[in-house]
Amino acid sequence: MTIHHHPSEELLMRFASGALEGPFDIAIAAHLDACVLCREEVAMWEGVGGAMLDEIAPAEMTQDAFARTLAALDRTAPAPRRAPNRSSALPASLRRYRVGREFPIGPGIYKRNIWKAKNGTGRAFLLRARPGLELPRHGHGGTEMTYVVQGGYSDEHGHYEPGDFMTADTDHLHQPHVDQDGECVLLIASHGRPIASGIAGLIMRFFM
Protein backbone atom coordinates (compact mmCIF):
# COMPACT_ATOMS: atom_id res chain seq x y z
CA MET A 1 0.00 0.00 0.00
CA THR A 2 1.50 3.29 -1.03
CA ILE A 3 0.16 6.19 0.95
CA HIS A 4 0.22 9.52 -0.82
CA HIS A 5 -1.64 11.78 1.55
CA HIS A 6 -0.52 12.30 5.15
CA PRO A 7 -1.52 14.47 8.10
CA SER A 8 0.49 17.69 8.28
CA GLU A 9 3.55 17.77 10.49
CA GLU A 10 1.72 20.13 12.82
CA LEU A 11 -1.16 17.69 13.24
CA LEU A 12 1.26 14.88 14.07
CA MET A 13 2.99 17.05 16.62
CA ARG A 14 -0.33 17.95 18.23
CA PHE A 15 -1.38 14.31 18.21
CA ALA A 16 1.81 13.34 20.05
CA SER A 17 1.32 16.08 22.62
CA GLY A 18 -2.26 15.01 23.32
CA ALA A 19 -3.66 18.37 22.28
CA LEU A 20 -5.89 17.29 19.41
CA GLU A 21 -9.53 18.01 19.97
CA GLY A 22 -12.37 15.58 20.21
CA PRO A 23 -12.62 13.31 17.22
CA PHE A 24 -9.46 14.23 15.34
CA ASP A 25 -7.09 11.97 17.21
CA ILE A 26 -9.33 9.04 16.21
CA ALA A 27 -8.71 9.76 12.52
CA ILE A 28 -4.98 10.32 13.02
CA ALA A 29 -4.61 7.10 15.04
CA ALA A 30 -6.23 5.16 12.19
CA HIS A 31 -3.74 6.62 9.73
CA LEU A 32 -0.86 5.77 12.07
CA ASP A 33 -1.98 2.13 12.07
CA ALA A 34 -1.15 2.14 8.38
CA CYS A 35 1.73 4.58 8.01
CA VAL A 36 5.20 3.88 9.33
CA LEU A 37 6.55 7.29 8.31
CA CYS A 38 4.02 9.14 10.40
CA ARG A 39 4.54 6.72 13.29
CA GLU A 40 8.20 7.64 13.21
CA GLU A 41 7.33 11.30 13.30
CA VAL A 42 5.02 10.79 16.29
CA ALA A 43 7.70 8.69 18.01
CA MET A 44 10.14 11.57 17.64
CA TRP A 45 7.69 13.93 19.34
CA GLU A 46 6.98 11.43 22.09
CA GLY A 47 10.73 11.33 22.68
CA VAL A 48 10.70 15.11 22.97
CA GLY A 49 7.83 14.82 25.44
CA GLY A 50 9.79 12.30 27.52
CA ALA A 51 12.91 14.46 27.57
CA MET A 52 10.87 17.50 28.60
CA LEU A 53 9.05 15.53 31.28
CA ASP A 54 12.37 14.50 32.80
CA GLU A 55 13.44 18.12 33.07
CA ILE A 56 10.28 19.88 34.17
CA ALA A 57 10.29 21.50 37.62
CA PRO A 58 8.39 19.00 39.79
CA ALA A 59 5.10 19.92 41.45
CA GLU A 60 4.45 19.00 45.04
CA MET A 61 2.40 15.87 45.54
CA THR A 62 -0.05 15.67 48.44
CA GLN A 63 1.46 14.15 51.56
CA ASP A 64 -0.21 10.78 51.42
CA ALA A 65 0.04 10.38 47.64
CA PHE A 66 2.66 7.67 47.72
CA ALA A 67 0.95 5.75 50.54
CA ARG A 68 -2.36 5.87 48.70
CA THR A 69 -0.78 4.68 45.46
CA LEU A 70 1.01 1.86 47.29
CA ALA A 71 -2.31 0.77 48.78
CA ALA A 72 -3.82 0.77 45.31
CA LEU A 73 -1.06 -1.52 44.00
CA ASP A 74 -2.41 -4.35 46.13
CA ARG A 75 -5.92 -3.97 44.86
CA THR A 76 -6.64 -6.21 41.96
CA ALA A 77 -6.51 -4.38 38.69
CA PRO A 78 -9.91 -4.18 37.06
CA ALA A 79 -10.09 -7.10 34.66
CA PRO A 80 -9.37 -5.76 31.21
CA ARG A 81 -12.52 -5.81 29.19
CA ARG A 82 -12.65 -7.38 25.82
CA ALA A 83 -12.30 -4.88 23.07
CA PRO A 84 -15.84 -3.89 22.16
CA ASN A 85 -15.28 -4.37 18.48
CA ARG A 86 -12.93 -6.91 17.08
CA SER A 87 -13.70 -6.55 13.43
CA SER A 88 -10.52 -7.05 11.48
CA ALA A 89 -11.95 -4.97 8.65
CA LEU A 90 -11.62 -1.83 10.77
CA PRO A 91 -8.39 -0.09 11.79
CA ALA A 92 -6.96 -1.63 14.98
CA SER A 93 -7.05 1.76 16.70
CA LEU A 94 -10.87 1.65 16.59
CA ARG A 95 -11.07 -1.47 18.75
CA ARG A 96 -11.45 0.51 21.93
CA TYR A 97 -14.55 2.32 20.72
CA ARG A 98 -18.09 1.11 20.68
CA VAL A 99 -18.71 1.44 16.99
CA GLY A 100 -22.45 1.69 16.37
CA ARG A 101 -24.63 -0.33 14.02
CA GLU A 102 -24.69 0.55 10.40
CA PHE A 103 -27.71 2.43 9.07
CA PRO A 104 -28.52 3.86 5.65
CA ILE A 105 -28.44 7.61 5.21
CA GLY A 106 -29.23 7.69 1.52
CA PRO A 107 -29.26 5.48 -1.55
CA GLY A 108 -26.10 3.41 -1.52
CA ILE A 109 -24.57 5.10 1.49
CA TYR A 110 -24.39 3.86 5.09
CA LYS A 111 -23.12 5.29 8.33
CA ARG A 112 -21.77 3.90 11.64
CA ASN A 113 -21.17 6.26 14.52
CA ILE A 114 -17.92 5.98 16.45
CA TRP A 115 -17.90 8.96 18.76
CA LYS A 116 -19.87 12.12 19.31
CA ALA A 117 -19.16 15.03 21.63
CA LYS A 118 -21.94 15.67 24.14
CA ASN A 119 -22.35 19.23 22.95
CA GLY A 120 -22.72 17.93 19.40
CA THR A 121 -19.87 19.85 17.80
CA GLY A 122 -17.46 17.00 17.19
CA ARG A 123 -18.05 13.56 15.79
CA ALA A 124 -16.28 10.59 14.25
CA PHE A 125 -18.07 8.06 12.06
CA LEU A 126 -17.63 5.55 9.28
CA LEU A 127 -19.25 5.90 5.87
CA ARG A 128 -19.65 3.03 3.44
CA ALA A 129 -20.58 3.99 -0.10
CA ARG A 130 -21.45 1.85 -3.12
CA PRO A 131 -19.17 1.74 -6.15
CA GLY A 132 -19.60 4.72 -8.46
CA LEU A 133 -21.60 6.80 -5.99
CA GLU A 134 -21.42 10.51 -6.57
CA LEU A 135 -21.99 12.80 -3.62
CA PRO A 136 -23.32 16.31 -3.91
CA ARG A 137 -20.80 19.08 -4.10
CA HIS A 138 -20.27 20.39 -0.59
CA GLY A 139 -18.09 22.41 1.73
CA HIS A 140 -17.61 22.22 5.47
CA GLY A 141 -18.80 24.15 8.46
CA GLY A 142 -15.56 23.35 10.25
CA THR A 143 -12.46 21.21 9.94
CA GLU A 144 -13.00 17.72 8.64
CA MET A 145 -10.50 14.87 8.45
CA THR A 146 -10.98 11.81 6.30
CA TYR A 147 -9.12 8.52 6.42
CA VAL A 148 -9.67 5.95 3.66
CA VAL A 149 -10.25 2.54 5.25
CA GLN A 150 -11.12 0.63 2.11
CA GLY A 151 -11.69 1.24 -1.59
CA GLY A 152 -11.07 4.59 -3.17
CA TYR A 153 -12.62 7.82 -4.40
CA SER A 154 -11.73 10.91 -6.34
CA ASP A 155 -12.64 14.56 -6.24
CA GLU A 156 -11.51 17.67 -8.08
CA HIS A 157 -8.28 17.61 -6.11
CA GLY A 158 -7.06 14.04 -6.46
CA HIS A 159 -7.59 10.35 -6.05
CA TYR A 160 -7.53 8.68 -2.63
CA GLU A 161 -6.79 5.12 -1.61
CA PRO A 162 -6.59 3.07 1.59
CA GLY A 163 -4.29 4.69 4.15
CA ASP A 164 -4.65 8.18 2.70
CA PHE A 165 -5.49 10.99 5.08
CA MET A 166 -7.02 14.31 4.12
CA THR A 167 -7.79 17.51 5.98
CA ALA A 168 -10.41 19.95 4.74
CA ASP A 169 -11.17 23.30 6.27
CA THR A 170 -14.10 25.66 5.95
CA ASP A 171 -14.69 26.98 2.43
CA HIS A 172 -13.16 23.96 0.85
CA LEU A 173 -15.64 22.71 -1.75
CA HIS A 174 -15.49 19.33 -3.40
CA GLN A 175 -17.55 16.61 -5.03
CA PRO A 176 -16.43 13.10 -4.11
CA HIS A 177 -16.91 10.27 -6.56
CA VAL A 178 -16.46 6.67 -5.38
CA ASP A 179 -14.35 4.42 -7.62
CA GLN A 180 -16.30 2.11 -9.94
CA ASP A 181 -14.43 -1.04 -8.94
CA GLY A 182 -15.56 -1.40 -5.33
CA GLU A 183 -17.17 -0.05 -2.21
CA CYS A 184 -15.45 2.72 -0.33
CA VAL A 185 -15.23 2.91 3.47
CA LEU A 186 -14.15 6.19 5.03
CA LEU A 187 -13.47 7.23 8.60
CA ILE A 188 -14.52 10.84 9.03
CA ALA A 189 -13.81 13.12 11.97
CA SER A 190 -15.38 16.55 11.94
CA HIS A 191 -16.23 19.69 13.76
CA GLY A 192 -19.26 21.33 12.21
CA ARG A 193 -21.54 19.96 9.54
CA PRO A 194 -21.03 19.65 5.81
CA ILE A 195 -22.62 22.49 3.90
CA ALA A 196 -24.08 21.14 0.70
CA SER A 197 -25.85 22.68 -2.21
CA GLY A 198 -28.99 21.28 -3.87
CA ILE A 199 -31.68 18.95 -2.58
CA ALA A 200 -29.36 15.97 -2.28
CA GLY A 201 -27.24 18.26 -0.17
CA LEU A 202 -30.04 18.60 2.31
CA ILE A 203 -29.88 14.86 2.92
CA MET A 204 -26.19 15.09 3.76
CA ARG A 205 -26.75 18.07 5.91
CA PHE A 206 -29.47 16.35 7.84
CA PHE A 207 -27.65 13.09 8.43
CA MET A 208 -24.04 14.07 8.75
Partner: peptide, 29 residues
Amino acid sequence: VRDPASLAGEIEPEAPEEPFAAVARRQSQ
Protein backbone atom coordinates in the same frame (compact mmCIF):
# COMPACT_ATOMS: atom_id res chain seq x y z
CA VAL B 1 -15.94 14.71 30.29
CA ARG B 2 -17.27 15.21 26.80
CA ASP B 3 -18.75 11.81 26.17
CA PRO B 4 -18.82 9.34 29.03
CA ALA B 5 -20.35 6.54 26.97
CA SER B 6 -17.96 6.45 24.07
CA LEU B 7 -14.98 4.74 25.61
CA ALA B 8 -15.22 1.11 26.41
CA GLY B 9 -12.71 1.51 29.20
CA GLU B 10 -9.59 -0.52 29.58
CA ILE B 11 -9.34 -3.19 26.95
CA GLU B 12 -7.00 -6.11 26.98
CA PRO B 13 -3.66 -5.13 25.51
CA GLU B 14 -3.06 -7.04 22.32
CA ALA B 15 0.38 -5.64 21.78
CA PRO B 16 2.53 -3.21 23.67
CA GLU B 17 0.73 -0.03 22.77
CA GLU B 18 2.94 2.64 24.25
CA PRO B 19 4.88 4.34 23.01
CA PHE B 20 3.44 4.34 19.60
CA ALA B 21 6.12 3.25 17.23
CA ALA B 22 8.10 0.10 16.89
CA VAL B 23 10.57 2.11 14.86
CA ALA B 24 11.61 4.32 17.75
CA ARG B 25 14.99 3.17 18.88
CA ARG B 26 16.61 3.66 22.19
CA GLN B 27 19.47 5.62 20.68
CA SER B 28 17.12 7.98 18.92
CA GLN B 29 15.77 8.93 22.34
